[in-house]
Design a protein around this nucleic acid. Structure first.
Lengths: 112, 112
DNA sequence: CAGTATCCAACACGATACTG
DNA sequence: CAGTATCGTGTTGGATACTG
């Protein structure tokens, strides 16, 4: 991750982007929003992501205080990921952006 | 840019990220929001960006229909960049995310 | 099951020089 | 002034094999 895009006084956007930037974190938020999920479940929902990258992204979101990781001492091991309150608030803030993308889906798909 | 992060049915977020992803486009939106600006002005406001990268980003935003490029046939040449209506609407959608980053600045700066 | 360890490829970014 | 052309580099992501 490219922490703090070299701009003078980091605006809120910079911080947000540092948190959810990259190819998968946004999709991850989308999956996590539906409730606690296990590692394998996420992999299946986010078709195309490698184990390495998924693990990395989860660690980063965890470090940012967005995701909570609950390890159950069982055999076989079980781990559940969920959003923290901060993560929930981020999801709220993300909603308008998603709505925007939906509203302009036609126009954008044609151009990108 | 990483168009269409390989997920089945692209959610609105994917589209939005494809548009404003990368290190500089968000900051660019921030600068453009204040009104028409010239290439050199943008360079000075976004300290650290190279001419090449700035030009690339502007071209991409232009292609996405977010930015309008107005060329004045003068000597020396003058070019002004501004937000299109679509760009303005994107800015609106971005606002909550920025507000979120501002609200949680303390907490995030410590973690990232 | 839930990861970690490696290795590799693609690409975004950066620095610099040059042009209409 | 407003770019384009080139070249080099670091980071991100992908594929695969292996482990507690």
């Amino acid at each position: 991750m490219e922490t703090q895009s070299g701009v003078d006084q980091p605006c809120g956007m910079s911080l947000a982007i540092d948190v959810v930037g990259g190819k998968w974190k946004m999709h991850l938020m989308w999956v996590l929003a539906e409730g606690p999920v296990r590692f394998g479940q996420i992999r299946r929902k986010l078709e195309g992501v490698s184990e390495k990258v998924l693990a990395e992204n989860l660690r980063q979101l965890e470090a940012s205080g967005i995701v909570h990781r609950e390890l159950y001492a069982e055999v076989p091991p079980r781990v559940e990921y969920s959003l923290t309150p901060l993560g929930e608030s981020l999801n709220q803030a993300l909603a308008p952006l998603e709505a925007w993308g939906d509203r302009n889906r036609e126009e954008l798909s044609a151009r990108i």
